[in-house]
Amino acid sequence: MDELDRKIINRLQLNFPICDHPFAVVADELGTNEADLISRLEQLSEKKYLTRFGPLYNADNFGGSVSLCAMAVSENDFDFVTEKVNAHPQVAHNYQRDHALNMWFVIATESQNELEEIIKKIEGETGLPVKNMPKLHEFYVGLYFEV
């Protein structure tokens, strides 16, 4: 990664233009050209410096349901429970954390009913209770990593 790659990552965490040649607009700002910017982005994606590039949708504003769920899982059962939880495509991400509640995952569905169904299914499949912690209020969301 060189200086221009770093500038690209910083710039593209902000708004990408909506126009016919958006890469050309950004390339111009960064002092390069459209083809160079696109090929660098391909490289950055391939080398996994970027996990996504495109519109980031806010699932809350579609009448869908998103919730953070937590479980306390014993070490012996951990792999089995991980497999059961991750098998649901509605589970968007899942992290192990150093706490008695050691499995934390986000479920995103198109309805509240579907969310509750998934939680019941996971409880049935694992025999463990799921703590459902939907957000009651959002104060801030804005991931920006300066490189």
Partner: peptide, 28 residues
């Protein structure tokens, strides 16, 4: 398409259009 994306950006259905860096790979 551009008009619908602009509308969704303005009403908050799209938070932003852009890149999500892999923060692990960037050292975070």
């Amino acid at each position: 398409l551009q008009q619908r994306l602009t509308t969704m950006l303005n009403d908050g259905r799209i938070r932003r259009i852009g890149a999500v860096p892999n923060h692990y790979k960037l050292g975070y």
